[in-house]
């Protein structure tokens, strides 16, 4: 029986050969994913003159000089970083806290509009923010909220995708018996949510906090429409670098500016990749 199976398998490729092919493709693909960031790192350490001579495999020693050059340059990238950081951290906190609250409302209580609300949130989940951008910008103009971080942070409270993830997580990880036990012990509903539900949701909250942080950090479309001058975030500064006559710039500094926007996320990812990759698998929805 066994030999029969082995014989039949010879029609296709053997396991050994298939393994070699798989590894080869995986290595090529990994190279394609990492190569750009490697070149970015190398080139950020080289001087302008050296860069003009072409490609090099090993780093040079100009990183610090390029960095001070960028700091003294025309682009306020430190300020841009703090702006980006502020918006991203606030969004991540608000988004995870209130999405958990929304999911808890739907998960733990029975009320008339429950089914309607759940269906509604799922329906609007995939609608892109760009299609409401026009009305959004006009409204901000009326409310004197242009060039402010508030319209980039507060809307994070209503995040259907995060809500959906939290709801899914609660189905399998939040026993309602626990909530009832807290009730019998006399804990108020709001307190139960803060002291019992939130800690239990920690794994899901950290995964979603990372995703919200990263998508806010990378966001370009909406900030570009509302932020100006001192409020500019990193993606806007990158776009301005693109529009400038960058070929005449010190190329080492151009690379450092790009690296400065990209490497913080890579660093965070190096430490948290396990959660992130698992989070993608578990969530299943991350357009």
């Amino acid at each position: 029986m066994r030999s029969e199976v082995a014989q039949k398998n010879e029609k296709g490729l053997g396991v050994g050969t298939r393994r070699v092919i798989a590894y080869t493709v995986l290595i090529i693909v990994s190279f394609l994913c990492l190569f750009w960031f490697y070149v970015l790192f190398i080139n950020a350490t080289r001087s302008n003159g050296d860069l003009n001579k072409g490609f090099r495999i090993l780093p040079s020693t100009y990183l610090l000089k390029n960095w001070t050059g960028v700091l003294n340059g025309t682009q306020p990238i430190i300020r841009g970083m703090f702006n980006s950081l502020f918006v991203a951290v606030c969004s991540a906190v608000l988004c995870t806290y209130f999405s958990t609250m929304t999911a808890y409302a739907i998960h733990a209580y029975d009320f008339k509009l429950k089914k309607f609300m759940f269906t509604f949130i799922l329906m609007v989940m995939m609608i892109p923010t760009q299609v409401t951008a026009l009305g959004f910008v006009q409204q901000l103009r009326d409310w004197k909220l242009m060039n402010s971080f508030i319209p980039l942070i507060v809307p994070a409270i209503a995040a259907p995708v995060t809500f959906f993830y939290m709801k899914q997580y609660m189905e399998s990880n939040l026993p309602l018996a626990l909530v009832e036990a807290a009730r019998i012990d006399g804990s108020g509903e709001f307190r139960t949510f803060n002291t019992i539900v939130l800690p239990l949701m920690k794994p899901a909250i950290s995964v979603q906090a990372i995703f919200t942080f990263v998508s806010s950090w990378n966001n370009y479309f909406t900030p570009a429409l509302i932020l100006k001058e001192k409020k500019r975030t990193l993606p806007i500064l990158i776009a301005e670098l693109r529009s400038a006559d960058w070929l005449k710039f010190d190329m080492g500094q151009v690379y450092v500016t790009i690296a400065f926007s990209i490497f913080p996320v890579i660093l965070v990812y190096l430490f948290l990749s396990k959660f992130i990759v698992e989070g993608v698998t578990a969530g299943g929805v991350k357009g």
Partner: peptide, 12 residues
């Protein structure tokens, strides 16, 4: 490794 580029700032 293959998931990494998804997190990178698209503009940068």
């Amino acid at each position: 490794v293959i998931y990494l580029p998804n997190l990178i700032m698209a503009s940068a």
